[in-house]
């Protein structure tokens, strides 16, 4: 199906999408880069002089930048660790024969559909609040001092909330991948005398490797942008204990109105995300024999 007429029609039909995405990518992106070289604060009207790398210098040397980078890494790494390991276990478990599989599966997946602001607030108030939260009540019932999660272990609390949201995603992807494993392969391995751990290690895990990589890459893209959960729980605090890169940029641009500084941060965030994206795109590309 490749005649000149159909190719011309195809070009015409694809152009609106291409133009829209091109506009969406190029206009804001070039503005971000442009702003990042200006001294530009909405609170200080006047001209916006070109200042070279000054914004980047300020942004990177600020102590909150280091904190934000560390927090971002811990947040992404912690959530990945929990969701991938938990996801593998859940997937293996849900792949076993059991009664009420459909209902159980739905219950496990449900948290993914809860909007970030709701899960942030629900965990913060109904569970982690030291006085009225369930964890507090349990601690009191056991005669222990309740933990004030957001002041004692703020980042860990955020990691917990975000993991709760993304564990279903990892489970679902890995379960789908596991179910696509040819049962005869496992039976053949069993005939060959492989024990369950051997079958898991030599057959299931290699089969899952690809899906695990996909889970890691896609989650990383989304986890770098975690925002709402922080906004509704800790506002980045105490201090900068839960400020990640996304939140730091939000603070400098929309709270401190420092357009230049926020833009410099934005450029850094884009570069970071692109490093992950390159690997992800390569994986997707391999699968695409268009």
């Amino acid at each position: 199906m490749a005649t000149k007429a159909s190719r011309a029609a195809a070009r015409l039909m694809i152009s609106p999408a291409v133009l829209l995405l091109l506009g969406w990518m190029i206009v804001p992106l070039s503005l971000t880069v442009y702003f990042s070289f200006l001294r530009y604060n909405l609170l200080m009207p006047g001209d916006n002089p070109f200042v070279g790398w000054e914004n980047y210098q300020w942004f990177v040397t600020d102590t909150s930048f280091t904190a934000a980078m560390v927090n971002t890494l811990l947040l992404v790494g912690g959530v990945l660790l929990i969701t991938v390991l938990g996801g593998i276990l859940f997937a293996l478990l849900l792949d076993q024969p059991m009664w009420g599989q459909g209902v159980i599966r739905i219950m496990v997946i449900a948290p993914f559909f809860v909007m970030p602001t709701v899960s942030g607030l629900v965990w913060k108030n109904m569970f982690m609040n030291p006085v009225n939260g369930i964890f507090g009540h349990i601690a009191q019932g056991l005669g222990m001092a309740p933990i004030d999660f957001f002041s004692q272990v703020p980042l860990l609390s955020i990691i917990g909330i975000v993991s709760w949201q993304w564990l279903p995603f990892a489970t679902l992807i890995l379960l789908t991948a596991l179910q696509s494993l040819d049962q005869e392969q496992l039976e053949a391995a069993e005939m060959d005398g492989a024990s369950w751990p051997a079958r898991f290690w030599f057959i299931m895990l290699p089969h899952l490797a690809r899906a695990i990589t996909v889970v890691i890459l896609i989650q990383t893209i989304f986890l770098l942008s975690v925002f709402a959960e922080i906004l509704v729980t800790t506002n980045g605090g105490p201090g900068t204990a839960t400020t990640n890169l996304t939140y730091l940029i939000y603070v400098s641009s929309l709270l401190q109105y420092d357009v230049g500084m926020g833009s410099a941060g934005g450029v850094i965030a884009i570069i970071l995300a692109n490093i992950v994206a390159i690997f992800l795109m390569r994986m997707i590309g391999k699968n695409l024999d268009a």
Binding site: L29, T32, L224, T246, S253, G266, A269, A273
Partner: peptide
């Protein structure tokens, strides 16, 4: 384009 972090273009 989906991989672009939203915060990167928040300001503009």
């Amino acid at each position: 384009t989906k991989m672009l972090p939203p915060v990167g273009v928040l300001v503009p």
